[in-house]
């Protein structure tokens, strides 16, 4: 038995299409996850005890259940409550909400990590509450959450592979389909692994560049 990558690579255009869908869902999903996570963390931070408590449960449920179960419930369970979504919409929604739960925790930790003294210093030079949040709290938090946020983005990239199971035509689905047609299962898995890994390395590289640029702004 020998590996024959040619049969897989001959389907280059299809694979590229799948790759495109993967990247699109990843970027758009992560974008919404960050926004939603930020809104949730901010509401918990400034919205009083009740809001904080109310938001704790959904976050814990989302972080405490497998992503696969969540997207199955959304895609196959949704119609039972009248929520009929096409695969891509369901995948995007699922990824955004799942990621948001984690980003909410990252941002919550970020808010807590800004030294209280930096806020007091802002108060003492006459900043209003809004100005303190805008000019001190948010920029400092953005720096602190950069590394865990990039890490989470990479995790979300790999989670997109699960969306193949709700028939999102992304890379994993495309390549495994080719593998089935051509009886080249192992080859298709190897190709998938290599492409995901390359994507992750690229993301990490961009992340490191950004962090290096921002390093002199580091917390003192």
């Amino acid at each position: 038995m020998s590996f024959d990558f040619a049969v897989i690579l001959a389907k280059g255009p299809e694979i590229l299409m799948g790759l495109g869908v993967t990247i699109l869902i990843w970027i758009v999903g992560t974008f919404f996850a960050v926004i939603l996570g930020f809104v949730v963390a901010t509401a918990r931070r400034f919205g009083g005890r009740l809001v904080d408590t109310l938001l704790t449960l959904p976050i814990e449920v989302l972080r405490g259940t497998p992503f696969l179960v969540q997207i199955f419930l959304l895609y196959f369970g949704g119609p039972y409550i009248g929520l009929r979504l096409d695969p891509i919409t369901a995948g995007l929604l699922g990824l955004s909400v799942y990621g948001a739960a984690y980003y909410a925790e990252i941002f919550r930790a970020g808010y807590q990590s800004v030294p209280i003294g930096h806020v007091e210093a802002a108060t003492c030079v006459g900043f209003s509450r809004g100005q303190t949040i805008l000019f001190v709290l948010l920029p400092e938090m953005a720096l602190l959450v950069m590394p865990p946020s990039l890490n989470m983005a990479v995790i979300l990239l790999k989670e997109t592979a699960l969306l193949s199971l709700i028939t999102v035509p992304e890379m994993t689905m495309t390549v495994s389909a080719i593998g089935s047609q051509q009886y080249a299962f192992v080859e298709s898995l190897v190709v998938l692994a290599v492409v995901y890994w390359a994507l992750v390395e690229l993301a990490n590289f961009l992340g490191r560049m950004t962090e290096r640029k921002l390093s002199k702004l580091g917390t003192t």
């Binding site: 030294p115 003294g117 930096h118 007091e120 210093a121 802002a122 000019f135 001190v136 920029p139 400092e140 720096l143 702004l217 580091g218 917390t219 003192t220």
Partner: peptide
């Protein structure tokens, strides 16, 4: 302040 509390950014 004792810890300076300059804004790092």
């Amino acid at each position: 302040f004792q810890q300076f509390n300059l804004w790092p950014h």
